[in-house]
Design a binder for these strands. Structure first.
Lengths: 226, 226
DNA sequence: GAGATACGGTACCAATCGGTACCGCGCAAG
DNA sequence: CTTGCGCGGTACCGATTGGTACCGTATCTC
């Protein structure tokens, strides 16, 4: 196919190919966000990317490939939070929870991510590999990272309980009340202030439920982290 | 059109019409559950209902009408729980929460309801009235009923806080960790045992968070308003 | 400079979509 | 029994889909 011989400026073609991919995916994202699942046709994507369907199919094979690449590219971005987790003491842990929760919700409620979730849910019955990709490349890694954090926190005697259960509880408190309405489109995207409030309440509730003994004003600590 | 004069067996035609509607909706449900959103074509529905597209369009006007009727018919069934709510004491309230939560989750995780949610989410961008119907006819009434229960419980000094916030918290604890994976199709439908465990944990966490000064099983009769 | 080759734009394909016009069967009135 | 009419099955419509063949062009090799 595209075999680069010695002396050939291979990086150039690779870069070109990458920019082509990016342009296609950006066009697909824009289409998906504006027009939804029904508007996501190969013609529309090619037109927006100012490329031919030929190149599009040379790059992704078929429409499923575009779906997978779409989910994959956004999933990679969703995996970033929880980079620096601190469990030195209760305050640091609360602050870590707050930062991680805020980063998580900010990603999760981004319009492009909402559109990807809608796409994955719509494709669930026909093409299970699409939501499967979202699960394996985004949700599961995030959950694993959070569980690791919970494990560390338990070892530091900051929480008690199974890390997996703690993770599920924290995520439920974080997203339980907003994600579905957002996917349904019956509420608008939360503002930054509301997001912070939501995370603060979730952290406070989580610590109240699962922090071993502390009885102090944890809500104030969480607020200070804002 | 179909003008019944006096003496004409109008109920018969009405009943016939109703059974026609039911047959169409049942066929649409089956199609939606098995083949997903993409398979939900008017031809398929008509074929399954053993009727002609002509009758189908005479009954529902257009495809949006079928969507709306689908969501509406299922939403009506989702509104049933919380019929008998008791807030006499803490134990009765806990039991009421458990029963209501279990009924709610049983409905919410029913495969047909999951399929309807997928449909509504997939249609969110193109046809906002479909998720709007789901919100207004199913989610909001359920939420209102639960909020009313929370108000009664607060008047009885069984919980403290804003009824709306309490409702959101309870629903988050109930559904937060399962609903999305179920919509994505990455987990299978929970069994009855798991559902009961899930509700029990949610009720316990909710009461631990919001029941005032709950140390043991105290019987406190502070009923105020009906 | 000539020839070969590979890439990209376009026009096309079969299939399917929502929606509708046509037409023939069957029931009711006279 | 004839006649008229209304309802339902079917065939069809234009539009659009995912996917591909064709073919002009521009570049690279010798």
């Amino acid at each position: 196919m595209k075999r680069e011989t010695r002396g050939n400026p291979a990086p150039s073609t690779t870069a070109l190919r990458d920019t082509a991919r990016e342009r296609i995916l950006a066009a697909a994202f824009a289409t998906l966000c504006e027009g939804g699942f029904a508007a996501l046709s190969t013609r529309e994507i090619a037109a927006r990317a100012q490329m031919s369907k030929r190149e599009l199919y040379a790059e992704f094979g078929n429409k499923q490939g575009i779906f997978a690449a779409l989910v994959e590219s956004r999933a990679r971005r969703m995996r970033e939070p929880l980079a620096s987790a601190s469990v030195e003491n209760a305050d640091a842990f609360a602050q870590t929870l707050f930062r991680a929760g805020l980063a998580f919700l900010t990603q999760l409620y981004d319009p492009a991510v909402v559109a990807v979730f809608r796409l994955a849910i719509a494709a669930a019955t026909d093409s299970p590999e699409v939501p499967r990709t979202l699960e394996d490349r985004a949700r599961a890694p995030n959950r694993d990272a959070l569980r690791e954090l919970m494990l560390q926190a338990r070892n530091a005697r900051l929480v008690s309980g199974e890390p997996a259960a703690l993770t599920g509880r924290f995520l439920a408190l974080l997203t339980g009340d907003i994600h579905i309405p957002l996917l349904l489109g019956v509420i608008e995207q939360p503002k930054q202030r509301e997001l912070e409030l939501c995370v603060r309440e979730a952290v406070a509730a989580f610590l109240q439920l699962h922090a071993p003994t502390r009885r102090t004003t944890r809500r104030r600590r969480a607020r200070r982290a804002a």
